[in-house]
Design a protein around this nucleic acid. Structure first.
Lengths: 144, 144
DNA sequence: TATTAATTAATAAATATTATCAATTAGAAA
DNA sequence: TTTCTAATTGATAATATTTATTAATTAATA
């Protein structure tokens, strides 16, 4: 998809969701749309403030939150708010509630049998893997 | 494994790694060892300060970091330091460097075919899943 | 073009994490 | 058991990240 197509799609999504297309939001989206480095708000802010010297850091934060909430971009780090620890050392997977951030362990031998792509082991020192299942838990679903 | 066996194993690991077994560390480990809620440092701190009223929050932070570094516990949130965004909406997976926190996208149709365990879909509203491959990337490995 | 609700910029406040350092203590050695 | 030393702790300051507030501005609709 060309840049222009991505931009058009972005603007269409905003209209569909009732979001204003502001120059700030467009600038933030353009900074992210071809960036595969999974940047954080600060990196995006620094990347656009030359072109957009009056933009506020809080605007970047809020725009990214808004885009995510409306499914325009994804959050890599759904559990970033605080570090969380797990005493279980054996391989297992996590069921994560997107609302309340509850994390449930899932031990499942079948899931451990995934074939690790060679592209990973060729380029890197492989350590381990874990699957994150994103859900809305029954409590949160009931609460809606 | 009984609680006492877990504690003995913990103390043995500490000795093996040259870590002192302090009352504070023991208290922190005991709070975590049977806790499957994936707590954060604050929750652990609150849970033990009644028994251990002089313990400092920074001690809890540091002990947890130390345990993790030595493989005694696991961090659920290896990318918690800041929120990070991704413009790619199609299903994909992430290769994460444990050292530099670089995240590389991996689109792999085979990996998308995992059979979702029924225990997940029965109890929750399933949204999606993503596999995180933890590695040490070639740059970080070269740097060691 | 005028109106209005949404958005922005600036900044303060709140929250989370890390660093510093003097005092204390665990574990090794005598 | 006591002494010694390096590691650890507690207290707190510093930093980083995120969220809230609010007056001014602006995008989108009529």
């Amino acid at each position: 998809m060309s840049d222009q197509e991505k931009i058009n799609q972005f603007m269409q999504k905003c209209r569909d969701k009732g979001l204003s297309v502001t120059p700030q939001r467009l600038s933030i989206f353009k900074a992210l749309m071809n960036d595969s480095s999974h940047p954080n708000p600060e990196t995006i802010y620094k990347g656009i403030k030359e072109e957009n010297p009056t933009i506020s850091f809080a605007t970047v934060y809020k725009a990214l939150e808004t885009f995510e909430k409306h499914g325009i971009i994804k959050m890599v780090t759904s559990l970033h708010n605080t570090v969380r620890y797990d005493p279980m050392l054996q391989q297992h997977h996590h069921i994560v509630c997107a609302k309340c951030k509850k994390v449930i362990d899932l031990v499942d031998e079948d899931l451990n049998q995934i074939k690790i792509p060679e592209s990973i082991t060729k380029e890197n020192q492989f350590l381990d893997f874990s699957i994150q299942f994103n859900v809305i838990c029954s409590e949160c679903r009931a609460r809606q």
